[in-house]
Design a protein around this nucleic acid. Sequence first.
DNA 1: TAGGTATTGTACTCGTCAGTACAGAACTTT
DNA 2: AAAGTTCTGTACTGACGAGTACAATACCTA
Lengths: 205, 205
Amino acid sequence: MATGRPREFDPDAALDAAMKVFWHKGYEGASLDDLTHAMGINRPSLYAAFGNKESLFRKALDRYAHGPGSYLHKALAKPTAREAAECLLYGGIDVLTCPESPGGCLVVQTALACGQAAESIRRELVTVRTTSLDLIQKRFEKARHEGDLAKGVDCAGLARYVATVMHGLSVQAASGADRKQLQQVAEWALRAWPVSGSQENERDR
Amino acid sequence: MATGRPREFDPDAALDAAMKVFWHKGYEGASLDDLTHAMGINRPSLYAAFGNKESLFRKALDRYAHGPGSYLHKALAKPTAREAAECLLYGGIDVLTCPESPGGCLVVQTALACGQAAESIRRELVTVRTTSLDLIQKRFEKARHEGDLAKGVDCAGLARYVATVMHGLSVQAASGADRKQLQQVAEWALRAWPVSGSQENERDR
DNA sequence: TAGGTATTGTACTCGTCAGTACAGAACTTT
DNA sequence: AAAGTTCTGTACTGACGAGTACAATACCTA
């Protein structure tokens, strides 16, 4: 039951706009003027609805995870580790090169190195990356358990390898590489894929 | 023959200190107070010796290329493409994880996404990355010409793949990965390496 | 030893930054 | 219609950003 003057903007749309500004300019590079202008609201509305800049960023990051970043969970749900890896790379590339987006990956390029004021944001993003890595590793371990990956495969290393390529692709995208070029990189990357558990059994016979 | 009051600091040492501040905090995150403090000089001395912040950064970048970044040229001088790639990855990792350094790679993490004021720095770094990529590609093409890489190998793709892994390793390092973990990633990455020209000939017989 | 020159340190300018006070506006409830 | 509540817009605050003016200092040359 709402009372008082109703809000004149859509918070989701505004948050979306803020997310894109952070994505494009980084945390430190995005000024409140940039943000309010893109969001189509003025400062007090922003502060009332989202708290301060840091709090706004965290909300934008959350929205990113549920929007552009959701390919991660979709990928991990694939039936095999190999498909998961393919989906991580190619799905990631789709996000990196989506023409409606600022390009690159918010989680990678927003605050890799920063001043004191953004330090807590940097750490937050490190945590996000670490958590994602962990999820990938767990997915691969499950695959190994299921015989989908060979017994001897180093899941931690493989997961970190895939994550590394994803992050590298993000830098490539930020450097102007186009979708086709990124896909070729993904193709190369997948050539390192280990023989599967079933192939291994095949060989044993 | 110098006249006037002599400079009381070593410009090279000061530039080195500035480089590390930029490396650690990024271009936008490094304030002039940070810089002058680390360099052990005061503002007018900085401006007299290095120009403005942007000019100082470009000089620091140059110093980076001739110092920590020099492994690139060393790697490309290796006799085979495979050795070059190994040296790019493992040599890069040494820089990324050098305990005396801020960690990660200056060229990757300094201004991936930034505000308007740092835009020209961002573009400069894109150019640096693109140029490096080009050098790697040229090295691989030479290898293909020499039969060191098989005739059909896509040198542009392979070069971009190696560069991508390097950039990804830089993000990993900035996220806290240690040297051993990065080396394991490099190992995985090299499993995608194509069969050599000579192996190919071997097979043909 | 006197004059010229370049560096140093302090203290400043001016713009931009994040964050906020306050008055007016718009809606609900009574 | 009046009171209560929440949002909007303007204009502000204080801190910090890059860049600089200027006097004092230290060296070289003459």
